[in-house]
């Protein structure tokens, strides 16, 4: 019976997983930097879909907002600033590819083995989950302010540290890419006797 086969959450998982993994590989295999950025967008978007599937809606939306909408736009912006013809596709030597493929394959096998090594990790999931356990947004928000209703430790200090870190990064990035003063070429040419 086909109805038994089509479990929508499983189907969606496989769909998102295929998109995420496929485009992650495309990022690796593509040589064209703008295409890579596009594939990365799709891969990260599909990852956000996976987050939504696990019930972590806030993290999924966050992934869309900050990762895909912010970080990647920034990245593409940088790509466009530097995408001169000669830098659009810098080829990698074949030797590097082979080494990377062997090591990557080994790493993948190791991680794949680990993923399926613990029986508890692929035991059948709980049949019924009470909604308040899944609904996590307000608990996330409270945890970030240091309030935990489930007795775990709060995250106020990490949150503050990250905030300060972001501020430092903001200033630092602004400093690195700061505006420089330069006389325009035309004016400089005119200056020359």
């Amino acid at each position: 019976m086909i109805g038994a086969v089509i479990d929508w959450s499983a189907f969606l998982f496989y769909l998102f997983a295929a998109v995420a993994c496929g485009f992650a590989l495309a990022v690796v295999l593509s040589n064209h930097i703008v295409h890579m950025a596009f594939y990365l967008t799709l891969a990260l978007g599909a990852t956000a879909g996976l987050f939504l599937l696990t019930g972590s809606q806030f993290v999924g939306a966050m992934q869309f907002m900050i990762y895909v909408g912010g970080t990647l736009v920034l990245l593409v912006f940088g790509v466009m600033l530097t995408a001169q013809h000669r830098f659009v596709s810098i080829r990698t030597r074949a030797g590097e590819w082979i080494t990377a493929a062997v090591l990557g394959g080994a790493l993948l096998m190791l991680l794949g083995y680990v993923a399926w090594a613990v029986p508890d990790w692929h035991a059948a999931p709980p049949a019924h989950v009470p909604p308040e356990q899944v609904e996590s947004t307000s608990r996330l928000g409270l945890a970030l302010t240091g309030v935990r209703m489930d007795g775990g430790s709060g995250y106020a200090l990490p949150f503050v540290i990250v905030s300060v870190h972001l501020l430092v990064v903001l200033i630092g990035a602004g400093y690195l890419a700061r505006a420089r003063v330069r006389v325009s070429d035309a004016a400089a040419r005119k200056e020359m006797p």
């Binding site: 978007g45 809606q57 999924g60 939306a61 869309f64 907002m65 895909v68 736009v73």
Partner: peptide, 14 residues
Amino acid sequence: LNVAVFFIVAIVGL
């Protein structure tokens, strides 16, 4: 979604 507002703003940004 219980984060619908956030989701929509994020998606529109895409």
